[in-house]
Amino acid sequence: MSVQSGTLQTVRVGRMSLWTYLGAMWRYRHLMFHLASADLQSRFRRSSLGVVWAMIHPLAFTVLYSIVLANLFKQEFTEFSIYVFSGFILWDAIASFVNLGAMSIISGAGYLKQAPIPMLIFPLRTCLTISVVFLLGLAAFFLYRTGMIVFFGVDQQIATILWLWIIPIAGALFLLGSAWATIVAFVNLKYRDAQQMLMILMQALWFASPVFFAREIFDSPNLTLWTAINPVLAFCDVFRDPILHGQAPELRDWIVIGIWTAISWAIALVMTAINDRKSIHYV
């Protein structure tokens, strides 16, 4: 079939190849970035402090939680609050990937019903927004920790070369988070009770991870297997090692994250291949 130069030709027969799909994703990349930026703008529009809220929010929660928990666990407030802050921003991102990711394709219905946009664009749009909020939280964390070191004499270094680990950590977080967001988005399309169940599941995961709870608890012999495979724990470790403990993240934790990411993306891609466009009737 000859195609005139300058004209588009599309042939549609059931499923498309991964390569064609990636090509379509590339064509719609501008839409993804523009919608992510629209999400960020609408999140802080009409508020006088605007984007600063993304920094105040984790700060306020940290102070609140730390006052209660430091008393409960008999910990020094200053140092403990830094631990809580680091856990909070990390957990907020992970929980958002799942909870907001579940609605990501449904919320793109208006666009998906107009044109053959790859559905995968929409979980990625949500994850981009979450990642920016995570980076703003990280900036707030850096300021807070510096304040604690300078004014309250917390014995940590303000910044070292180890902080560069933040780049691969944020990248890995986005990779795993976007795979999870994609999976739950497709599941939630067909089974709307999924979102409710996920919220409970995430709460359980929170309890089973050193987000606010002390890391030592998870070294208990009863928890050996869980500690070895828990992806949230691995993320807490790779994140806190360079920033709080002045050491490079351990390879073991990267392996756990790598395996989770590979499996999650394999599932996410299979689900996309099976469901993209077929599930438009459920949107």
């Binding site: 549609r12 044109a115 438009i280």
Partner: peptide
């Protein structure tokens, strides 16, 4: 327009398509 997937058969389109559906959504 490619919004709904085919169960069987094929559709071949040459040229840029523009759909006007549901003008109030999206």
């Amino acid at each position: 327009a490619g919004v709904y997937p085919l169960t069987d058969g094929s559709i071949e389109v040459t040229g840029r398509m523009q759909g006007l559906f549901d003008l109030g959504t999206g």
